[in-house]
Nucleic acid binder design. Structure first.
Lengths: 360, 360
DNA sequence: CTGAAAGCGCTTACAG
DNA sequence: CTGAAAGCGCTTACAG
């Protein structure tokens, strides 16, 4: 009486492929073939196997299958912060695209800490995930570079490596920031503040560069005193915005390095009694959903996050399934975003009512 | 020359436990023992194994370990909608608690579709996850009930089963809704509208019941015309709120079944030119982060989601690790939430500035 | 078209 | 305290 381990644990054991084979009177190899839709199986045999499977209520054990086949049909996804709507919104798309192709995703939060990210990478590799999608890679990260050049299936989205290595899908950050800055300049703003993301993020550097470009092209001075570090985090962005708004000769407009920090600026402005957009224009970047809310109406640059996430997931899976296709040629895609003009920039007197009134 | 499969794939193979054993001159069993911190191993042998591991750069293969040990150290988490901040915020806590105890989580999105949830359950079981945390179980769900009574490790949070089966951690929804409704009544409101969640959610039924209780206790009539279905979704809540606000004799206050729908009410009120809180009081339930934003300042019932998520994760793992402890006695925890008074209910003339000014 | 056999990389009683 | 052996539940060349 050979008791399977499972039998010991719960009262009853799940049937295995061996059980199905016995029930159908065929070999385990044959069962495996029909279960995996191999071509050359006699219809009668196929029917018998399927009947046995149904009779026993057999379900495949993916762990065993993974060990034998060398693929887990699982991908790891590392984001900086699930509380930043940008990551929640892109994670959702990635999870759904992956699911549509039979992949599950293990979600990890690096909390904007580069060290934590590598811990997750190690763990995910131990788990034998088929690939890893990074939402928050550091601009210079020797570990990730090594991983990428080793041929390990990786996909970067949102941020990329300074070296330019690896497969990635990003937005044209300099363009995005130029767009939004030029928009403010066109509205007559001259003293424009900027709240930057952390140095180690490519997005932060590129967005700052775009801001500087727009200012210079307009012949406006870039005052260091008007540039503050917000680290893409709510708390630090609050402090950055507050100090920016408490100086004498404060800016008349602020470009936030992302929507999350733009929300922080709106928070502080409100608390300080500085009316937006009458006394201060505020713009962000990312196009997170909440920015469209009536009480927020954040002007931003967006319309790219869904595409970015879908591309990242789709091509991650392509790379996993045919790595040789991508060994020489990296998949590198840059999306051009769209300026979304809403209320906080001051360009619109009152909100449009079209959509709602028509829906009534 | 026995080429491992891995060797065929990439240029080089990862070292296995067998390699470590050979390198250290011991058996694989011994390597396994030191790697898993078994007590009775001679210190010298332990050192040798650890040295070999380091020399080879060995990392465990969790898939093999899972197959042999029968545990994957992975839990499944099914939420209704990652775009609802409540789920993003609780998912983050669950992922972090799990990580602290060595568990990874596979995140699934049921999109409020009961059928999709069962698909995910089947997939997660095939993946041999050690347990499943449900964030959005249906009030009546024979499949989940069967799963729960079969002894499969499950944890429900947020919602529970009508049968009362299973381990769960929920908030006292009736109390929560009574609190917020009584608050509105105390402020003088008599015509109060309610936007309900979907029938199949225990939270929706309990919150509606709490609303009715508060109204009845105050001797106020519950007018069916003032109760609308919002399904916990933005789009349908928009429609529900709009129809509620366009009737003649519209309510002076609206209780939304959750914060997500309260945001929808604020959206519509804004678009219709109905000022909050002067012309309409709005309250929600959940205490999502964005509700605290200056531009929103949503009165709600909260201060429970972190605890709920942490308890769900912690006890899920306890149950996984000692199922016999919970075979007779279910873990069932009900959290009493706190009323959070902010601006949208009209109780506060102008927002408090304390925190900020003190921080300056 | 199908089966016997080896193998994936671990763990775990069972001896000693 | 340690090793030999069996086993976890699959897949995959290799024959036929």
């Amino acid at each position: 009486m050979l008791t399977k381990k499972r039998r010991q644990r719960h009262g009853q054991a799940s049937p295995t492929l061996t059980d199905v084979a016995r029930h159908a009177g065929v070999s385990r190899a044959t069962v495996s073939r029909v279960l995996n839709d191999y071509p050359h199986v006699r219809p009668a045999v196929r029917q018998a196997v399927l009947a046995a499977k149904k009779a026993l209520g057999y379900e495949v054990n993916y762990v065993a299958k993974s060990l034998a086949s060398g693929k887990t049909k699982t991908i790891g996804l590392i984001v900086a912060d699930l509380l930043n709507p940008f990551y929640a919104e892109t994670a959702k798309v990635i999870i759904e695209v992956a699911r549509g192709r039979g992949y599950n995703v293990i979600l990890c939060n690096s909390d904007y800490v580069p060290g934590l990210q590598m811990e997750h990478v190690d763990l995910l590799r131990q788990r034998q995930v088929d690939g890893i999608i990074f939402g928050s890679v550091s601009y210079d990260d020797p570990d990730v570079e090594k991983l990428v050049t080793s041929g390990y299936p990786c996909m970067l989205y949102n941020r990329r490596l300074r070296s330019g290595l690896g497969h990635y899908v990003v937005v044209d950050n300099a363009y995005a920031t130029r767009e939004v800055t030029q928009h403010l300049i066109a509205l007559g703003h001259r003293r424009i503040g900027f709240i930057a993301g952390p140095q180690e993020a490519s997005t932060a550097q590129e967005r700052l560069a775009g801001f500087n470009q727009a200012m210079e092209q307009a012949g406006l001075p870039v005052e260091p005193a008007l540039i503050r570090q917000g680290y893409y985090k709510h708390e630090s962005a609050l402090r950055a915005a507050e100090s920016l708004l408490r100086v004498s000769g404060r800016p008349t407009a602020i470009v936030a390095g992302n929507d999350q920090m733009a929300l922080s600026v709106l928070q502080i402005a409100g608390e300080l009694g500085i009316e937006v957009p009458q006394m201060l224009a505020v713009v962000g970047i990312d196009g997170v959903d909440i920015g469209a809310h009536y009480n927020i109406q954040l002007t931003t640059v967006g319309h790219y996050k869904q595409e970015m996430a879908a591309l990242a997931a789709t091509w991650m899976i392509e790379i996993i399934q045919a790595p040789e296709r991508f060994a020489r040629q990296a998949f590198q895609h840059i999306i051009r975003p769209t300026l979304i003009i809403r209320r906080t920039c001051g360009a619109i007197a009152r909100p449009a009512l079209q959509r709602r009134t028509q829906a009534s």
